[in-house]
Amino acid sequence: PEAADLRALARHLFRAYLKYFPLTKQPTRAILSGKTGDNAPCVIHDMKSLMEGEQFINCRQMPFQEQQQTSVLTAAHGGLTEVHMGSDYGVWGMTSISGQEPQNAVELRFFQSCQSRSAEAVREVTEFAKSIPGFTDLDLNDQVTLLKYGVIEVLIIMMSPLMNKDGTLISYGQIFMTREFLKSLRKPFCQMMEPKFEFSVKFNTLELDDSDMALFLACLILRGDRPGLLNVKPIEKLQETVLHSLELQLKLNHPDSLQLFAKLLQKMTDLRQIVTDHVHLIQLLKKTEVDMCLHPLLQEIMKDLY
């Protein structure tokens, strides 16, 4: 009966994962391996193709967009225009990239667009967290703490399937941006993605599927060692159950990968350093880029994080 309960939990979290995350691993890998035929992503590899990429997006309907979803975020922080994700605004943000625009501004605006998508992704992760049995029964302050400390780790894991050694899918899989192009941006923008590529290429060799990912993400959210938690015991109890479910899932789904569970536990530790470095880089950006506006939701999450 216990194993049956753990399997039921795995199925529940997998359904929630499919419901709340718009682009999961299976379709992503199909896009990256060129199995989507006519729907191949537009490739951005230099400034010219960056501008063409915007045109490409403006000509296509953005998938997975629901007005209801975007309105939650806009209402949440005073309706800043940058959080709108509708096709009227395009993937890059509020206006078109003009040929005369200084390169500095291009990088900054691209960064702002990444922030918009990240904020939307935080909302998706929040909904997923709320679907974890017992999560919404936790002290509300602890729910906030778990999300504050867990959400960037979750986003990095969700980003991994979008990446390969040569680049990353963005804009819901409609664009492939090359790693070399990202490395060619001016400092410190060029330093932002490289650590994520290094992590993701290794993480992808573990070959988790979407049902494994759902359980792993839930484990990342339910960590009893986040700073400032008020009531650790119920969180640890929840995490223990999800960890057992993950262990069983991996045994059944990857019978030949004997150390997979242990490797995933190690990845949980590795992620903390990547997040720390990321937050420090954002703090550096805030100091050096006078025109930069950090999204209010991301600001909340990163303030006093590490």
Partner: peptide, 21 residues
């Protein structure tokens, strides 16, 4: 903590996307 994280708090409390799996 809730005061310092108003948007996160609101996302946690909002009921526009009920978990109706």
């Amino acid at each position: 903590l809730k005061e310092k994280h108003k948007i996160l708090h609101q996302l946690l409390q909002n009921s526009t996307s009920p978990v109706d799996l």
